[in-house]
Structure formats: structure tokens, C-alpha cells
Design a protein around this nucleic acid. Structure first.
Lengths: 229, 229
DNA sequence: CGGCCCTGGATTGTCTAACAAGTACACATG
DNA sequence: CATGTGTACTTGTTAGACAATCCAGGGCCG
């Protein structure tokens, strides 16, 4: 009867809170997260804060080098392209499989209807149903690993959008139209066309984000040379 | 200059050691990893052992539910299919892109030559160059995130193979032939054929692994049976 | 005789306190 | 001005301890 409302784990709760705040844009890129600071803010011991930070590092929300303080990850234009290209690879494969069986996922249709409903709203309200639409497509094929990977990519897209402030250029009616086109192509069994159209559909926001993050090629491409992992 | 020789982190070293031992098959499925046990074996404090265990849980080598001891993950037939299908999704997209530019990755050719060289060897020696071949294909497109995801899938394939003992049915000459066919199709720019052929190429080992892991549909589909150790 | 409670041991989650090691920055010195 | 040093800050790791939880075995009652 209890609906598992308590996260039963302090580090999980802290990590969830920090992650949601990062995705909401409350912590801009390069914000430092010291262990003692996190421990003090959430009133927990330092090992607990440390575990939460490392959890976020593991899922690429924060980055840290040994003996250095963790910071909110900075996504450069290279990262944005990589995220969108990887995302497209997964989703195109999904579209091909869905078109094969001509199965239009009901959850995606529902997300699409939500998107139509708030069509007149401002740009930022549309990204949630937009993401849900794509996520529903991927989830519908019932592959836990594919879903988990895609979810991680979507999360990074949201992180990137949160870091870029002046980004209101989304055109809801165009998104709705293109989504509908995708669903139609799936229903028609034309996987190749759906796959190709997805590239088009994703290219616009991708380049928009690339432009928004500025000319930064990568987070650490400009300090003498490679001091990489 | 300095070649980063010491892993400077105890938990990293412990996690690496346990992971390699798991992938080598020294710890069969469902092997329990108690925090105090790991701490004693590596002569470190319990938090350190805990961190190492949680690191392995994060990368799906171990699984644990709250307040329960971590165990080596058990991959059922559902998991094997999911791993191979997800793997195919990523790699097919990669093949399409490679064929688009007709670029045959040199690293893949090198792995292929290694595979030909030990062609006469037993089956188990072939899986390393085999994996390296596929990994080289994926790495060649220069997408860090795609590579990381594919690597995680390859790692799970290796884990699965390590857990299945009697699995010597690989036919090296067939693998060599099919790999060469893939490279030829890439060079010819026929991405669609390469993509389709990859499905064929992966289906055989997939079904072989599915059969090897037995009729277990999933790790926790039947709780009335084996819980030994 | 069988089912249920209940009490132990075992294990994990978390805390406090502390020390060692490494980095970064300021400062003093040549 | 360059260089070396030192100090503060932060992380990596340890030790010990306590509460909460889970599992199994035994005793009690029907």
C-alpha cells in the first residue's frame, strides 16, 4: 500500500535534487560542488555528499578530475553534435523497426496530442512533450538498454538547453507537423523515409544549439594541448 | 611524459580488478560481494570497498537492491536478445555512415588481419579480435558517446560469454569471411546491404548465446528455483 | 503437528572524527 | 621579475560506531 515515496537513500535523494536543479538551470556550467559544501547544505556527512557527487559524475552531470572539485559539466559545440548524432543513430534504428511492423506507439500519440494542446504556449513549455514524444517512440520497442541509453542522451540535451539562456526560437507548430509526419510514415511502413526525415527534424535544433553554445569546440580543447583522461 | 602508471585511486583499482576477474569468468553469476568481504580481501576500509562495489553496480557488472548484498549480474535470454538488438541498432547506423563516405577503417582492417592470422586457433582466442573489429568500426566515426555506449554493450557480451562455459562453437573462418564481406560492402558504398548483413552476422552468435544461457527468460522471472551458492 | 511470531545474526546505510596527500594561490626572497 | 616555499583548502582514505533492515531459525500457540 505504501507507494515507495521515501527515496530511502540519502545519497539518492541528494543526487536527484541536484540533478533536477542542474536540469532546471539553477546551476550554470562550471558551478563548483565541493563535498563539504554539499554536506553542509543538505545536513549530511561528507561521505554521503561524496557519494551523491560521484553518482552524478558517473551519469555525466558533473565532471571531476582526481583531487579536484566537481563542477557542472560544460557542453561545447562538439558535444552537442555528438549528442545529437548519437541520438539520431539510436532513434533512426527504432523508427525502422517500428515502420517494419507499422506500429504507431499510443504513448507517442498521446504526447503528440499534449503538444498540440499547448501549441500556443511559449517555447519552453514545448520541450517537455517534445522529449516525451521521442522517448515514447524509443520506449515502445521494449528494449531496456536502448531506452536507458536514449534517456541519458535526452538528459544531456536538456542539460544543454538549461545552460543556454536565450533560446526561445522553437516553433511549436512546426514540431507538431513534423512529429505527425513521422507518425504517418511509421503507419505507412516507410521506415527509410521516416529515418531520413528524422535527420531533418533533428538537424534544426541541433544547429540551433550548436550556435547557442558558441564557438567553443569542446570543454577543454584550448589549454596548450591534450591532457586528457 | 608521465604515463599515468598508478591508478592513484584504491576504489578504481579494486573495481578494475573485480571487473576483470568477472569478465574472465572467475566469479560465476550470482556470486555475492559483501562489503566487509571485499574490504578484507583487498585490505581497505569498508567505505572504499563500498564505493568500488557501487561503481560496478553503476556499470551493470553487479546488481544490488537496497539493503541487500551485491551479486554478479545474471543475464537471461531476454537480456542477451536486448544486448544484441541494441548493439545491432548502434552498429547498423555506424555502417550506414561509413558506407556513405566509403571509408574503410584501418583499425578494423588490422583487427581483421589479426583474426585471419590466428584463424587456426581454438574458438576462445577469436573473440578478442572479433570484438576489436566491431569496436574499431564504431570508434572510427569519432563519436565518444556512441563508442562509450557500444563499449558497454561489448562488455556485457563478454560477461555473458564468461558466464557460459561450454561455448566453443565459433567458426573462425566464417567470422573472417563475414567480416570481409562487411568491409567490402562499406568500400562499395552499399550501406543498406552492410546493415542488413550485420543483422545476419549477429543473429547466429546471438541465438547461440540465448540457447546457452538456457530457458531462463530473465534474471528474476522465477523465484522458486535456484538460489544456491 | 503445522503455522505464526519473534528474536537473533548478518549486512547495509549513515555518521563522527581524523589523518594523509595533493593542489592552488599568495607571499616572501633572490 | 622569476622562483621557491608555505599555508589553506579540498579530496582520498581510514577507523570505529550506531541504527535500520533483512533473513533464518526456534519457540509458542492453535
Amino acid at each position: 500500500m505504501a507507494v515507495q515515496l521515501m527515496t530511502v537513500s540519502a545519497v539518492q535523494a541528494i543526487a536527484d535534487d541536484i540533478r533536477s536543479k542542474i536540469l532546471r538551470g539553477e546551476y550554470p556550467a562550471d558551478t563548483a560542488f565541493t563535498e563539504t559544501d554539499v554536506a553542509a547544505r543538505y545536513e549530511v556527512a561528507r561521505p554521503t555528499a561524496k557519494a551523491a557527487i560521484e553518482k552524478l559524475v558517473a551519469e555525466s552531470m558533473l565532471e571531476r578530475r582526481t583531487n579536484k572539485t566537481a563542477k557542472v559539466i560544460t557542453l561545447g559545440s562538439d558535444d552537442v553534435r555528438d549528442i545529437y548524432l548519437t541520438r539520431a543513430r539510436l532513434e533512426k534504428a527504432v523508427l525502422l523497426e517500428l515502420a517494419e511492423s507499422r506500429s504507431v506507439p499510443p504513448a507517442a500519440v498521446a504526447a503528440q496530442q499534449d503538444l498540440e494542446r499547448i501549441d500556443s504556449g511559449s517555447g519552453l513549455d514545448t520541450v517537455e512533450p517534445d522529449m516525451r514524444f521521442h522517448m515514447a517512440l524509443v520506449d515502445s520497442i521494449g528494449s531496456p538498454r536502448t531506452s536507458r541509453m536514449y534517456e541519458s542522451l535526452v538528459s544531456q540535451v536538456r542539460l544543454c538547453m538549461a545552460q543556454v539562456q536565450g533560446l526561445e526560437l522553437v516553433q511549436p507548430e512546426r514540431i507538431v507537423r513534423e512529429h505527425q509526419h513521422l507518425l504517418d510514415l511509421i503507419g505507412a511502413g516507410d521506415g527509410a523515409a521516416a529515418s531520413a526525415f528524422l535527420d531533418e527534424h533533428l538537424s534544426r535544433p541541433r544547429e540551433r544549439l550548436v550556435a547557442a553554445v558558441g564557438g567553443v569546440p569542446g570543454p577543454e580543447a584550448e589549454l596548450g594541448s591534450s591532457l586528457d583522461t
